[in-house]
């Protein structure tokens, strides 16, 4: 199993004089779980945004399932099986958790543009899928509360469930643990692990917490000032001198 499902070649993205992403290449193997790390401002989010169609790349090429999607609109990428979350949770704050999922579910079922109510069988399918997603992230108890009222960690989980609602094969998570309390982090880590192990999805995530990254990821890419500093297995990365010097506090690695 070494099929490359997602590939980025020589991605460049500048903001005026800021070279946020400078010639970054990346391959994601189907079924794997890979991480991107790097200090604040390294360009991780910008890279995610360029890869997922939020920004236009200045140059470079993005392929997904062998199809060139460099300039594809976002909704086409989603239809092809991409899903993502944002560094600051991107949800529908005034809608209930259930409704948050519903929007993606009806979109995936090609019902989003429908003017008539959906019929009973479609409704049942959607309801079952929603139940499964709520179970998966363990948010059943809050299903009918507005997401804005939930704790930060639950909002995160809701967003992950939303990104799953469109049946993706590749899930991109931008700092899913950012700003979470310790107990919440454990919940989210568990869910990410299950994305890979239970659902068999390909996962690409950005993370700060080295402990989490080293324990979850099969491959790691280190970004620094818009460029790739190193790439490899967790063992290779924690042994890499350049990485240690440039970014990772030694104690962190040694403590793992």
């Amino acid at each position: 199993m070494s099929d490359v499902i997602f590939q980025a070649e020589n991605i460049v993205k500048h903001f005026g004089g800021v070279h946020a992403v400078e010639d970054v290449s990346l391959s994601v193997i189907a079924g794997s779980i890979q991480a991107i790390i790097g200090p604040n401002g390294a360009g991780k989010s910008t890279l995610f945004n360029a890869l997922s169609g939020f920004y236009k790349c200045d140059s470079g090429k993005v392929t997904f399932k062998g199809v060139d999607i460099t300039t594809a609109p976002i909704h086409r990428r989603i239809a092809m099986g991409m899903g993502r979350t944002f560094q600051t949770s991107s949800i529908f704050p005034n809608l209930s958790v259930y409704d948050n999922l519903l929007i993606g579910l009806q979109s995936a079922a090609n019902l989003a543009f429908r003017f008539r109510p959906v019929d009973a069988t479609q409704h049942k399918t959607i309801e079952e899928k929603a139940e499964r997603l709520l179970d998966f992230v363990n948010l059943k108890a809050s299903a009918h509360r507005p997401v804005a009222e939930l704790a930060h960690g639950s909002q995160r989980l809701c967003e992950i469930a939303m990104s799953l609602s469109t049946d993706p094969v590749l899930v991109m998570l931008d700092e899913p643990m950012a700003g979470l309390a310790h107990a919440e982090t454990t919940r989210v880590v568990e869910v990410i692990r299950k994305l890979h192990s239970e659902l068999g999805l390909t996962v690409l995530f950005v993370e700060h917490n080295m402990r989490v990254v080293l324990s979850l990821a099969q491959r790691i890419m280190v970004l620094d000032r818009g460029r790739v500093l190193a790439e490899g297995t967790p063992a290779e990365i924690s042994a890499n001198e350049a990485v240690r010097d440039a970014y990772i506090g030694k104690e962190v690695i040694e403590s793992v």
Binding site: S52, F54, I74, H75, I78, A79, G83, R84, F86, S90, I91, F92, P93, N94, L95, D99, L102, I103, G104, Q106, S107, A108, L111, A112, F113, R114, F115, R116, P117, V118, M162, S163, S165, T166
Partner: peptide
């Protein structure tokens, strides 16, 4: 209708609506 729900989603958060396809 489902269409109306989609509109409400767009109002709530257009970026998220796009990333739901």
């Amino acid at each position: 209708s489902p269409f109306g729900r989609s509109l409400i989603a767009i109002k709530e958060n257009e970026t998220r609506a796009r990333y739901l396809g």
